[in-house]
Amino acid sequence: MQAARMPRPKFTVLVVDDVPENLSHISGLLQPLYHVKVAPGGARALEIVRGSAPPDLILLDIMMPGMDGYAVCGKLKSDPRTSDIPVIFLTAMAEDIDQEMGLGMGAADYISKPVNPAIVMARVAVQLDLKQARDRLHEQNRFLEQEVTRRTDEMNGVHEATALVLAGLATARDNDTGHQLVRLQHFVQALARRLSRQPRHAPALSTPVIDLLFRAAPMHDIGMLGIPDRILVKPTPLTQRETALLQTHPARGRAALEQVERRLGRTVPWLELAKEIAHAHEERWDGSGFPRGLAGVAIPLSARLVAVADVYNQMTQPRIGRVPCAHAEAVALIGAARDRLFDPDVVDAFLAIEDEFQEIARRYPDTEADFHKQLALRDAVGDTA
């Protein structure tokens, strides 16, 4: 006893032949099971196929005046919109070389004339079953690609959230705020996009790299976790010993991120940039920075970008015991430090988009609650001193 077949969806079959009797005969065979369209020549067939409702299968005569079946098949297979539609050649040309030529052009099958109705129906059914299977496979592949993209986006979101949480642990212990990190991300992103317009920097600042910089920038001061609170919020000038201890935060930051990477057991691109930034964002173009006294292009580009963004960020926001600079004053100070403290190319990029920096600062301002957090932290440290 044969197993019951699953109901077949009503496919559309296009029959192409220049002989009206052939069109009538073959379409008559197919109509009980399929939607049938007919075309008396190659040009009309292409119009139908490229219309709003292309067929699922094409039965195509080879020997036609004007545009023969080979030419039609070639055009179908060269067009991404129609290349997946299976083509079965119908022809009285029964030589092996003719079949090899048709199959070599991408035809799915070959039926010789005069046609045998049972063979036509069987081969049409086989090709439509194969097409349905291919379509399902393509759909599954599309779903899997979308799922991979979704999960990758989720993982990127987790990485970014982890970076912000870790960086937030550092900023929660000094006079900085959570908004400071968000501003810094957008400052660095804006600088990198502007600098990427310069031919010599474009290869190093592709869109994926800029995205990684956006995620890595908040880690610049992660090393502050290793600095005592009494130093971070001290209202009076630091002693020489305290300054030396504070200046260990870049090396501490890099070491902490290296430990994270070792635990992961693999290299993570955004962590690579985060390590660069954490270790070198306090270096200065003229070699006067710390911890290694690097100068010029020996300083990683990622750190040179963060250096300018971080200084603007620090200068223009209110802190306990420090009056913020106006935007114009901060711009002037950074411009004056061009080719001395900061990479001249980065400063030029900053000067070109200073209005964008000001807009970012307006979009992510510190709040009254942030200021009270600073006061509470200072008082808490003072009480335990």
Rank of each mutant, 00 (worst) to 15 (best):
G287V: 14
S288C: 12
G289D: 14
G289K: 06
F290P: 08
P291T: 06
P291N: 11
P291V: 08
R292S: 15
G293D: 13
G293Q: 10
A295K: 10
V297C: 11
A298Q: 15
A298C: 06
I299D: 03
I299R: 02
I299Y: 04
L301P: 02
S302R: 01
A303Q: 00
R304C: 01
A307P: 03
D310H: 00
V311D: 07
Y312M: 01
Y312P: 02
Q314K: 04
M315L: 15
M315K: 06
T316F: 07
Q317C: 12
Q317L: 14
Q317M: 14
P318D: 05
P318E: 07
P318L: 09
P318H: 03
R319L: 06
I320D: 11
R322L: 13
V323N: 01
V323R: 04
V323I: 07
P324Y: 13
A326F: 06
H327W: 10
H327G: 07
A328R: 10
A330T: 09
L333K: 11
I334C: 00
I334E: 03
I334W: 00
G335N: 04
G335Y: 03
G335S: 06
A336W: 07
A336S: 10
A336L: 07
A337G: 10
D339P: 00
R340T: 06
F342C: 02
F342P: 02
D343L: 09
D343W: 08
D343N: 08
P344G: 10
P344I: 04
P344E: 14
P344M: 11
V347P: 10
V347I: 13
D348I: 10
D348G: 11
F350C: 01
L351D: 14
L351E: 15
A352S: 13
A352L: 12
A352P: 08
D355L: 13
E356Q: 05
E356T: 03
E356G: 02
F357D: 08
F357W: 12
Q358W: 15
Q358C: 13
E359G: 05
A361Y: 08
R362F: 11
R362Q: 12
R362W: 09
R363Y: 07
